[in-house]
């Protein structure tokens, strides 16, 4: 079976890979590009652990064919922090103890950042519905919601001109 050659942008870097026509973008990110921060919890779009940004929108990478990535712009958890500078949502997750096992955390952080990038002042209900596609089995969501609300408040303050 012939492989497809795909060129794409991942976290700002141009990346090339070969993939079979049936491989998902999640498979390629994890197995070909060694970016294992994006997790597989279900492979059917029901848990959100594999959430990435595709052309600026958050999607489940298990529900994207790898070949679709040709010429697209991909963002993963590995690109959320700028160097060693954590994104506010990453910091508030730590401050609020919003992770226990940490397996769902990358998906939550990518999704939460996507929310805050478009809505800097979400209500608790908006946060809960935005994150409904991300399953967490450890925390009961309480501290995750607080961390996202707190990051939103911090970002609003940053964005307000002095």
């Amino acid at each position: 079976m012939s492989k497809l050659h795909v060129t794409t942008s991942v976290n700002g870097d141009e990346r090339e890979f070969l993939c079979g026509p049936g491989e998902t973008l999640l498979d390629v990110l994890r197995d070909e590009l060694d970016m294992t921060g994006t997790k597989e919890g279900c492979g059917s779009g029901d848990c959100g652990a594999c959430t990435i940004m595709l052309d600026g929108e958050m999607v489940c990478s298990c529900l994207v064919m790898a070949a679709e990535a040709q010429g697209r712009v991909i963002g993963t958890i590995e690109g959320v922090a700028e160097g060693s500078e954590l994104h506010p949502v990453q910091r508030t997750f730590l401050d609020h103890a919003a992770l226990q096992c940490g397996f769902c955390t990358p998906g939550f952080i990518v999704a939460a950042k996507a929310l805050l990038d478009r809505n800097p002042d979400p209500t608790e209900t908006e946060v809960r519905y935005w994150l409904a596609g991300n399953l967490c089995r450890c925390t009961g969501y309480d501290k995750i919601i607080r961390a996202v609300m707190d990051a939103a408040a911090e970002l609003r303050q940053e964005r307000t001109p002095a």
């Binding site: 294992t36 958890i77 590995e78 959320v80 990453q90 730590l94 992770l99 940490g102 955390t105």
Partner: peptide
């Protein structure tokens, strides 16, 4: 305090079973 393994886990670097 922040957990010792926290930064690894919020940046996607922590190595889990399938990783």
């Amino acid at each position: 305090p922040v957990r010792p393994d926290g930064v690894e886990k919020v940046t996607g670097k922590a190595v889990f079973g399938p990783d």
